[in-house]
């Protein structure tokens, strides 16, 4: 059975603008970045010549500075994602199991911090964590410590900042998935001899995995490219690839190398997305 022509026309009416938008805002800029990554740096404006060589990629792959920054970014992002999952899952579960009237209020509290500028919230953490910040001053005033604790300019602060900033992006998709699980399924598990812990691991948890994966991607992907948090809360040993990219672009004015880093990052991040897509297709 083929579609009526008017349905095809109507579909085109909706699909074409969306497609055009994706081309203009995603495909074109990404293509441009990829094209520049094959060019050569010069002293001009803009500071590159079009070319077709892969020397920039060879440079990035061969220099431990870049490779380590990539590895560190993936490591920090992965650890932060795991922590977000560990904190976010119980939160999402508790909200989904709360009385209906209270769920909206609890969700509101999760999203509330996002109403303030991201940058201001990171600065607020600096104020809290600095050697002369609120936490150290309070602990010293209480006589609990003599010397300020090293709370900032280290991996701890970077993880804390990323977990703090991205936690809502873990909680929301998880909540949406758990909330949609039919309560009768849990009752059926109880009916069939499964006490609450067992019912959770055999029914609720497996059915919430797609939400956990969606949440993990929403944390992991931006965290990999994170620039502000490691810059403001991190130290010299927590430089992530976003910071290196910034240096290449604005300080060294080496656009082709910066673009090669950006393209490589996009390639690395495409991996988990494609995996998720395959999982979803298999899952249905």
């Amino acid at each position: 059975m083929s579609e009526a022509p008017w349905i095809r026309r109507a579909r085109r009416m909706f699909v074409v603008p969306a497609f055009a938008w994706l081309v203009a805002t995603v495909a074109l800029p990404l293509g441009l970045v990829a094209a520049i990554s094959l060019g050569e740096a010069t002293q001009a404006a803009p500071p590159f010549d079009w070319a077709l060589n892969f020397t920039n990629y060879a440079l990035v792959a061969g220099d431990p500075l870049y490779v380590e920054a990539f590895a560190r970014s993936v490591r920090i992002a992965a650890t932060s994602t795991a922590i977000c999952l560990a904190i976010g899952y119980p939160m999402a579960l508790a909200i989904a199991r709360a009385p209906r009237s209270r769920r909206v209020r609890l969700l509101f509290l999760v999203v509330l911090p996002c109403w303030t500028s991201f940058l201001i919230r990171v600065y607020a953490w600096m104020g809290l964590l600095r050697p002369a910040g609120y936490i150290n001053s309070a602990l010293q005033a209480l006589g609990l410590i003599d010397e300020p604790l090293a709370l900032i300019a280290n991996a701890f602060a970077v993880h804390l900042g990323i977990v703090y900033a991205y936690l809502p992006f873990m909680v929301l998709p998880l909540y949406a998935t758990i909330e949609r699980i039919d309560a009768a399924l849990v009752e059926a598990a109880h009916d069939l001899g499964a006490a609450p812990v067992r019912a959770f691991w055999r029914v609720t948890f497996p059915l919430s995995v797609p939400g956990a994966i969606a949440g993990a991607l929403m944390v992991f992907i931006p965290a990999c490219g994170e620039f502000v948090i490691p810059d403001l809360l991190g130290g010299p040993d927590t430089q992530m690839i976003g910071r290196i990219l910034w240096l290449e672009f604005f300080q060294n004015r080496d656009w082709p190398v910066a673009c090669a880093i950006a393209t490589a990052l996009a390639g690395i991040l495409a991996g988990p997305i494609l995996l998720f897509d395959r999982y979803r297709i298999r899952g249905t």
Binding site: D182, A184, L185, E187, A188, D191, L192, G193, A194, R202
Partner: peptide, 25 residues
Amino acid sequence: NTVFQSYALFPHLSVAGNIAFGLET
């Protein structure tokens, strides 16, 4: 044991998996 109104079958388990669920404990 209960036969639920909407059956409440576990969507992530096969027919055999659903039937075996209650036997696991």
